[in-house]
């Protein structure tokens, strides 16, 4: 998680106070995770309104089930699992009509090939000030099938370790690595040609 979260110990103390009646502290407990939970929900739900509903439900469920959180995992990992379950449950209900497979689809076989380039000019993070670049990235992530999208969100965006990602998704470390590899190559394949075109030399000059 990128936002500044209290130490695990502080968090355990806050959780203990909430459980013993100081429920108002729940607001402070979850503040560092609002963005993460929303992002994960959005990456699965694909639209803002559903994502917000899922995020709210996840925080409510975490509150109601706080007593069941016994410090077995990090609070953030537990919260992410709840969010994923909430989003998956909702997608499953929505998808009965759409026929999109949302359960753990088997790993697709064959090698994923990257986009071949002869040179690469770094796209600076300032490029994200441009709406079209942000959209390009969002669409590429959202365009991945769910099993790849989840590992990208947890590992790349939320910066969980491979082990934490495996715990949150209830899959093996080896599966995380395989999916992550394929997802990274897929993103490169989609985005490298698009970003290359969107990154003409002159446009960066005026911003540097």
């Amino acid at each position: 998680m990128k936002n500044v979260a209290p130490s695990v110990r502080d968090e355990e103390q806050i959780i203990a106070s909430i459980l013993s009646g100081d429920t108002e502290q729940y607001h402070d407990l979850i503040r560092p995770y609002e963005h993460s939970v929303y992002r994960i929900a959005l990456s699965l739900m694909k639209n803002e309104s559903d994502a917000e509903d899922v995020a709210q439900e996840a925080f409510l469920k975490a509150f109601r089930n706080l007593a069941a959180f016994l410090g077995r995992a990090k609070f953030s990992t537990w919260l992410i699992s709840i969010t994923l379950n909430e989003a998956r449950g909702r997608l499953r209900r929505q998808s009965l009509a759409r026929m999109e497979s949302l359960d753990q689809t088997p790993e697709e076989g064959g090698q994923v090939l990257p986009a071949l380039l002869r040179d690469w000019r770094e796209v600076p993070s300032e490029a994200l000030e441009r709406k079209e670049i942000r959209e390009m990235l969002r669409e590429a992530i959202v365009g991945l099938s769910p099993i790849y999208r989840e590992v990208v969100m947890l590992r790349e965006v939320e910066e969980l370790s491979v082990e934490e990602t495996a715990t949150a998704l209830s899959i093996s470390v080896a599966s995380v690595k395989t999916r992550l590899h394929r997802a990274r190559i897929m993103l490169q394949k989609t985005l490298a040609p698009q970003l290359k075109t969107a990154n003409p030399k002159k446009r960066w000059f005026q911003w540097s």
């Binding site: 380039l117 965006v157 993103l187």
Partner: peptide, 24 residues
Amino acid sequence: ICSAILDSTRNILVLTADDRVFEL
């Protein structure tokens, strides 16, 4: 070619992780 693939992948992952991609 492989250097460009590696650089572009690394660059894309850095951009992907930026908070601005999925804003609240």
